[in-house]
Design a protein around this nucleic acid. Structure first.
Length: 1147
RNA sequence: AGUCCUAUAGCUCAGUUGGUUAGAGCGCUACACUGAUAAUGUAGAGGUCCGCAGUUCAAAUCUGCGUGGGACUACCA
């Protein structure tokens, strides 16, 4: 559909452009063409991190998706095949909670008020609730991703791939079950994920009773070193903010490298003499040195000031192994306990430098205890299962809930009975939430009575709460399945070092540090809607099977049916090797169906599925494999889609998706999952606050796109700040981008189209060789090629901001503000000669190239620009800019000298215009001369080349080169610190002073001899021209301006001749205005009639041809009589007023 | 609490291997231009380069310690 005219627009409406171009893309199926035309080419592998369609897309999604889109489009232009499959993250807690809220139920109702099957059906439907919205945004913002064939994590095929991976992990021995301490909400009866704990407002300051307890040391061989010094009982002091964990204490942790002291003093409550052990650095908090002078003998029970005496000092390592008496001897532990152990997490920041260890209620505690062979304090429930002292409802186990044998052998019922059944936090007690006393206080009182409490006080600390029930959580031992990532930690670190992180600091810092402190990956979730763990075990846990495919499960079911554990095979209709939806929808791998599958072990025992689901992050981390149903499909060409060349997501995915991708890939494939990654920052509101529903400061992406179009939004987001910096989103910025960048580019195109259409330019003339084009054409082409190089380099380095800013600068400053402005006259009027063709070709090339370079960032407008140009010239066969090849820069066209001298011209013009303005002489008034000091020959040559350009731009007749010989220059000299500094170091100050004192003669001398000797206090030194910068800042007697190295003087005398020319130009200007006001076409010919005026007549006569040429006037008449009705009064200056008529004539 | 990022004009951001007058755009003020015109240009005002200390002849730049903002990870007793 070649057109003869370049399309002209009435105005710039980027919102409309967005819509028009989308229509074209849809009609032409441009996205698919961008894939088809690259078939068989090398692939550039990109992974889309799956968003959850459960939430509404926000403006920050436009940010992340713009980045992804940019590099996919760029690599397509570079000739790669860039498949991008969309994906949906469909499992997980946010979905479940949304459904619970919608149905008005809680977790406990699932399986009772609503069946698991119904519940999961609802989740399945709910999770895709906003799919339309997402697809709409994706479409409108121009994010090219295949949404027709997305991967969906709940799809049975997807789950089958996950099962395969889990089986592999199992085979490698990397899957294990263990008890760990996890956040648990007794009020809600459920474990909590860290994600839930990080909901806003979960961590709250609470005031709790804290106790410094005295643990009585047992006198034996190991504690001899203490008792050698002490003459009373010896106690270890340990602080806790959770007194209810004290009965579960089984160890005390000290740091082997900390110094501890033995202090003789008195118990402040009972007044009994005691000797205590605590960290030296913590002594001040318990035994203020103000009391050091008090004598022990003078102390009376009840005295406020308690005397003390340090009687010995030890290092922590000397204390390890000391035994102590159980603080609350209620329950006998089943193994070794009540020993001092070492733990490097112990600090002296607070407490006593001794940490009370309750392995059942603390992760650190558990780890430290295990490492030292200390048993946790456990009880046995009715079924003889080991349980912590606190039950699931948050109370000390009632005695009747315990196994009678255990009670008989391990429990001191006399002591325990008063506390059994007490809630550890009042909040959990349905009957006594506002009871004034608490278990913590009761325990404190008990200890106090027994002379075991050293200090009891209220303390405010930060403690996590369940976001659903608002009640404090407990850390509680729960059974979980783990992936043993720690086994491959070193390899994961090694592989990470090969990844190109943008910014690098996220890779080495946040991600690198995370890897160094890796803990095993807790996979288990006790929920309903997610990927079930494919593990079946016998009741005695002696046999276990991990299923890795649907086919295997079908076969196992077959056996189970035969063994009589199931009535029929739920997978009976499944056909192995047939990958259709139908086949894979003949069953469901979700709960509750998998729970109803019972298998048979090799020894014929019944096997039950482990009821856990797996962490949804495993779903997303496994997408490289599961999205192509590996290894069931695409096994042969897997290398084409793995690993990824590039991924990009928000930085908060670092420990989420980035980590799970890396972990699974490292563990199972010994490879990175991605080679290049951009972790972009957040989108904040314009005041730097996080956008949130609560604050109502979110920005609706649909509104912005509707109003401005996607291009300015994308351009703003990309160029305003680096992707990895947080973006303070201000809609004003989008508007500015629209005006400054797109407005300028649009104007430049419009200018081109206007005149090209007048002249019928369509690039059919032979290409004017670049060397035959004028200086200014070669200059802009040089810059253009420099730009291509820079933009390519920026894209290759995954720095879109640099690319966008470079393009923007080129368009605004160089192309529009300089090239077009200086060349306007070449486009209008005159013959369609080589010079004019060169101008058109040059400007065309610039516009076309800019369109291609910028199209990854602004895909809509640039496609329109490209096709508007190409529809006339047909230079490209591609129907869209997104199907073109990225331009190759031509090193030969890059001329740094040329670029430099144009900079000189720009600076000098700006200086001259500044001077004119200072003395109020309009640019239209020609002046006779400017003078420029020439300090070296290169500068003279450079200036000479752009002389005409400067003269016409500033409307001056002559440029005079001032050299030394003219004797009018006053020079200034400055030291060059860069060369002098390294040589003279400390003497720089003296040199600087000496250079400043150099006379005009001295400067001439160094210029002539390239050497100058100066004497400093430490002796004579020689400097050369290289060591100084000489410039001329003043030309006495002239109007002078300077900037950097350049100085310009302007002759402001206006001769009669110049005056006449000025008047002629003023007149031309008025005529042009009249033409325009009258609505004439730029090509219309006119007749001008002017009423005579003595200030004007001579000028009109003298410049008649010039005026006629500029205004396309066939006739110019000066008349005596008044003009008829169509005339207009014009004012050329204060005392020059006359009337004029401008009429259109034919031919 | 730890880790990481960040702090430059009223606002958004540049600022090369440290080099001596710290820049741009927007906004503000004034002016100019007018065949790119719902554009454009020029000039002006506006800075404790977050603070303190250090390294150096020389620090916005390097180091350390703080402070503010942000993110992530956290049962520190």
């Amino acid at each position: 559909m070649k057109q003869s005219k370049f399309k002209e627009y009435k105005g710039l409406d980027l919102s409309q452009v967005n819509k028009d171009v989308l229509k074209t893309w849809d009609k032409n199926d441009t996205f698919h063409k961008s894939l088809e035309t690259r078939k068989g080419h090398p692939t550039f592998v990109f992974y889309e991190g799956p968003p959850s369609a459960n939430g509404i897309p926000g403006i920050h999604h436009v940010m992340a998706r713009s980045i992804k889109d940019i590099f996919c489009r760029y690599k397509t232009q570079k000739g790669f095949l860039v498949e991008r499959k969309a994906g949906w993250d469909t499992h997980g807690l946010p979905v479940e909670l949304g459904v619970e809220k919608m149905l008005g139920i809680t977790k406990e109702d699932i399986g009772t008020k609503i069946s698991v099957e119904e519940y999961n059906q609802t989740c399945r439907k709910e999770v895709m609730k906003y799919t339309d919205l997402w697809e709409d945004l994706t479409h409108k913002m121009g994010y090219w991703v295949d949404m027709e064939h997305p991967y969906i994590t709940y799809d049975n095929r997807y789950i089958e791939s996950l099962w395969y991976l889990l089986q592999k992990l199992h085979e490698k021995g990397l899957l294990y079950k263990g008890k760990t301490i996890q956040p648990y909400s007794p009020a809600a009866g459920t474990g909590l994920s860290t994600h839930e704990l990080n909901q806003p407002g979960c961590y709250r300051d609470v005031k709790d009773t804290t106790i410094v307890a005295q643990f009585k040391v047992i006198r034996n061989e190991k504690s001899k070193l203490l008792f050698d010094k002490a003459d009373t009982d010896v106690y270890v002091l340990a602080w806790t903010t959770t007194p209810w964990t004290l009965p579960s204490n089984t160890a005390l942790a000290i740091n082997a490298n900390i110094r501890y002291e033995l202090v003789k003093s008195f118990n402040p409550y009972s007044g009994d003499p005691i000797t205590v052990l605590l960290a030296k650095d913590r002594r001040e908090s318990y035994f203020p040195s103000a009391n050091a002078e008090l004598a022990l003998e003078d102390y009376k029970a009840g005295d406020k000031k308690v005397p003390f005496k340090v009687i010995a000092e030890f290092t922590g390592s000397q204390l390890v192994g000391i035994n102590y008496e159980q603080l609350f001897p209620w329950v006998k532990p089943e193994g070794d306990a009540f020993r001092v152990i070492a733990g490097d997490f112990v600090t002296t920041e607070d407490g006593t430098g001794v940490v009370h260890i309750a392995p059942t209620f603390g992760a650190d505690d558990d780890r430290a205890a295990k490492a030292s062979g200390i048993s946790p304090l456990i009880l046995r429930d009715k079924a003889n299962n080991p349980e912590p002292m606190v039950d699931r409802r948050g109370r000390f186990y009632p005695i009747e809930d315990l196994h009678p044998d255990f009670v008989k052998n391990h429990i001191n019922v006399e002591l325990y009975k008063d506390f059994a059944g007490s809630f550890v936090k009042n909040e959990y007690d349905p009957e006594a939430a506002d009871k004034e006393t608490s278990l913590d206080v009761d325990l404190a009182v008990t200890l106090k009575k027994e002379n075991k409490a050293f200090r009891i006080e209220k303390h405010v600390h930060n403690y996590p709460h369940c976001w659903r029930t608002d009640k404090p959580i407990l850390y509680y031992p729960l059974d979980s399945w783990f992936i043993k990532v720690t086994a491959l930690k070193d390899r994961m670190i090694e592989l990470n070092n090969t990844i190109n992180w943008k910014p690098a600091s996220t890779g080495t810092g946040r991600f690198g540090k995370w890897l160094e402190n890796l803990l095993d990956w807790n996979l288990s979730r006790s929920r309903y809607w997610g990927t079930p763990l494919p593990i079946w075990v016998t009741e005695d846990r002696s046999e276990m099977i991990c299923i890795g495919s649907v086919a295997q499960m079908k076969a196992e079911c077959e056996k189970a049916v035969k063994a009589g554990f199931m009535e029929k095979n739920p997978l009976a209709n499944f056909v192995e090797g047939e990958f259709t939806s139908n086949n894979y929808e003949s069953f469901d791998l979700h709960r509750p169906f998998v729970d109803n599958v019972f298998l048979v072990s090799s020894t014929g025992k019944k096997m039950f599925r482990e009821p856990d689901l797996i962490d949804v992050w495993f779903d997303s981390g496994a997408m490289p494999y599961a999205q192509v149903h590996y290894p069931f499909e695409h096994k042969e060409n897997f290398g084409d889609v793995y690993p990824a060349d590039f991924i990009a997501e928000v930085v908060d995915q670092t420990r989420g998706w980035f980590y799970t991708l890396h972990a699974i890939s490292s563990l199972l494939f010994d490879s990175v999952a991605f080679k290049n990654i951009i972790s972009n920052g957040l989108v904040l509101d314009k005041n730097g606050n996080k956008m949130s529903k609560r604050l109502g400061n979110g920005v609706d992406p649909f509104e912005v796109i509707e109003k401005y179009g996607s291009d300015p939004l994308r351009w703003y987001m990309i160029t305003n700040s680096q992707p990895w910096d947080n973006l303070k989103f201000d809609i004003e910025g989008v508007d500015e981008v629209k005006r400054k960048f797109f407005g300028t580019l649009y104007n430049t195109y419009s200018f081109f189209a206007l005149y090209a259409n007048v002249d019928g330019f369509n690039y059919s003339d032979a290409e004017v060789p670049v060397e035959k084009r004028p200086e200014i054409d070669r200059w802009i082409l040089s810059l253009l090629n420099s730009l291509i190089k820079e933009v390519e380099d920026a894209y290759e380095s995954y720095e879109p901001t640099r690319a966008g800013r470079a393009i923007q600068d080129f368009v605004n400053e160089q192309l529009s503000n300089w090239y077009v402005r200086l060349n306007r006259k070449r486009f209008w009027g005159g013959e369609f000669d080589t010079d004019k063709i060169a101008a058109y070709q040059t400007l065309y090339t610039c516009l076309e190239t800019v369109a291609i370079l910028a199209s990854p960032i602004a895909p809509f407008f640039m496609d329109q620009l490209f096709t508007d140009l190409n529809n006339v010239t047909g230079k490209h066969t591609d129907e869209s800019v997104h199907l073109t090849q990225f331009p190759k820069y031509n090193e030969k066209l890059i001329d740094k000298n040329l670029e430099e001298r144009m900079e000189i011209a720009q600076s000098i013009c700006s200086l001259v215009l500044g001077l004119r303005r200072k003395v109020n002489i309009k640019v239209r008034q020609p002046l006779s001369k400017i003078m420029i000091p020439i300090l070296d020959e290169k500068f003279r040559a450079q200036l000479k080349a752009v002389e005409n350009l400067i003269l016409s731009e500033v409307n001056v007749k002559e440029l005079e080169y001032l050299t030394d010989s003219t004797g009018v220059l006053v020079k200034k000299i400055k030291p060059n610190f860069k060369t002098l500094g390294p040589r003279f170091g400390k003497s720089m100050k003296a040199i600087s002073d000496a250079v400043a004192k150099m006379t005009q003669a001295d400067i001439s001398s160094i210029e002539r001899n390239n050497n100058f000797e100066m004497t400093l206090a430490e002796g004579p030194i020689n400097i050369t021209l290289e060591d100084v910068e000489i410039l001329s800042e003043d030309i006495p007697g002239w109007l002078v301006a300077n900037e950097g190295r350049y100085t310009v003087a302007l002759d402001i005398k206006i001769s009669d001749e110049l005056k006449m020319e000025g008047i002629a130009r003023e007149l031309i200007n008025r005529v042009q205005n009249i033409r325009k006001d009258s609505g004439f076409e730029v090509t219309d010919k006119i007749k001008i009639t002017i009423k005579k005026h003595e200030g004007l007549n001579n000028a009109v006569v003298a410049h008649k041809d010039y005026i006629a040429g500029q205004t396309l006037a066939k006739e110019i008449n000066l008349v005596d009589s008044e003009l008829n009705g169509n005339s207009i009064v014009i004012e050329l200056d204060d005392e020059l007023k006359t009337s004029i008529s401008v009429e259109k004539i034919e031919g």
